[in-house]
């Protein structure tokens, strides 16, 4: 493995900023140079990071449809403030 000035740890630390397009042009160039010319394992790390985020978001889509027990809604609505309760 032929490393550049950017270390694997620096690459790991910058993965999210890279994916969010928040790196400076120079950092982005060094990041990509490390990944694509020097260190395939960091390239694999980037892909596995992206896949982890995808899996979490996929789970998020399913849990956002979670059932809400009707008794919870009823219990909350029973405690809705009335008239004077809302006065400052």
């Amino acid at each position: 493995m032929n490393h550049t000035s950017m270390t694997c740890k620096q690459v790991y630390d910058l993965v999210m900023a890279y994916l969010d397009n928040e790196l400076s042009a120079q950092d982005r160039a060094e990041f990509e140079n490390h990944l694509y010319k020097c260190c395939p394992s960091c390239g694999a790390y980037l892909e596995s990071y992206k896949e982890t985020v995808r899996l979490a978001r996929q789970v998020g889509r399913s849990v956002s449809q979670d059932d809400v027990p009707p008794r919870l809604i009823e219990a909350i609505l029973k405690r809705v403030p009335q008239g004077d309760d809302l006065a400052d």
């Binding site: 493995m1 490393h3 270390t7 694997c8 260190c39 394992s41 694999a44």
Partner: peptide
């Protein structure tokens, strides 16, 4: 600062 396990597969 380099990885302990270069090439280890996730």
């Amino acid at each position: 600062g380099h990885s302990w396990e270069p090439g280890s597969a996730w």
